[in-house]
């Protein structure tokens, strides 16, 4: 049994946690694994193929119940835990994070510990995403419009981007509100674009950049670029890094009197 499995099994048999969320090998890549008994933990793995952001399960009370829970964490999952705690969706200390440092298993129980680990392990954008982002920014406005309308044309409104996002936890989403109906429910370029603008605006300063939306998209719209671009704008305008659990409040629910306003006349 791996050290990770041993640790998870120990936490479960001691009764420290009632549930360990992790990954196991599936038929097509890795898949989430929910361990409620010590023997369930035998198949847990944690490697760079564990790409799903399982941090999203932490906001599902029907799954978590009221007890403590442990999660085996990639850096993206750790950022999710930090951000969700800052948004008061998780209680600091209720989530135990299990991470790997080489072969050793690290157990982090507080947000401060996780933040320290994250600060020491920054994660950069993939070269592919960087290249596409700078290519898009270099285009003229008309070309960018054509690029995105073409992408939005493909959207089938399956809302996989929403389902996969660990920060999309509203009980009632704007697309389900029909009085007034802000966004038409059918798949058409305009309503698809409006949906994405809404989704991304609601991520302002909160997106942890895990790329789950992007990977979940069945028609391969590079959704991640929208939030990455916005995070860049936010960093530049307000000096706030997106999705870092800013305790001063979210970017759009806080302000400074001297925020710049070079576009307002």
């Amino acid at each position: 049994m791996s050290k990770l499995s041993e640790k998870a099994a120990a936490l479960l048999s001691e009764g420290t946690v009632g549930l360990v969320i992790g990954y196991e090998q599936g038929t097509h890549g890795t898949r989430p694994k929910f361990c409620r008994k010590a023997e369930d933990a035998a198949t847990l793995i944690l490697n760079d193929k564990c790409l799903n952001n399982i941090g999203g399960y932490l906001t599902k009370p029907e799954l978590i119940g009221s007890g403590k829970v442990a999660v085996t964490a990639t850096l993206a999952v750790m950022r999710t835990v930090v951000q969700l705690t800052a948004e008061h969706q998780l209680t600091d200390g209720n989530v135990i994070v299990l991470a790997l440092d080489g072969d050793e298993v690290l157990q982090m129980a507080s947000i401060d510990e996780i933040k320290k680990w994250l600060a020491a392990h920054p994660e950069d954008l993939s070269d592919e995403n960087k290249a596409l982002l700078s290519k898009l920014k270099a285009l003229s406005r008309e070309e960018r419009w054509n690029f995105w309308i073409n992408e939005m044309n493909k959207c089938i409104k399956c809302y996989a981007c929403r389902a996969s996002c660990p920060l999309c936890y509203c009980n009632r989403c704007i697309v389900e509100v029909n009085c007034p109906q802000w966004i038409k429910p059918w798949a058409a370029p305009l309503s698809n674009m409006e949906w994405q603008i809404n989704r991304v605006m609601h991520m302002a300063g909160r997106c942890v950049g895990c790329g789950a939306c992007d990977r979940a998209c069945p028609v391969h719209i590079p959704l991640r670029l929208l939030t990455i671009s916005m995070a860049g704008d936010i960093k530049e305008a307000f000096g706030v890094a997106s999705g870092t659990g800013n305790i001063d409040g979210n970017v759009l629910s806080s302000f400074k009197p001297d925020d710049k306003e070079n576009f307002i006349h």
Partner: peptide
Amino acid sequence: RRWTVFRGLLDFM
């Protein structure tokens, strides 16, 4: 703040 963020996003799209 909202318009700063929104404007950037619209321009990117």
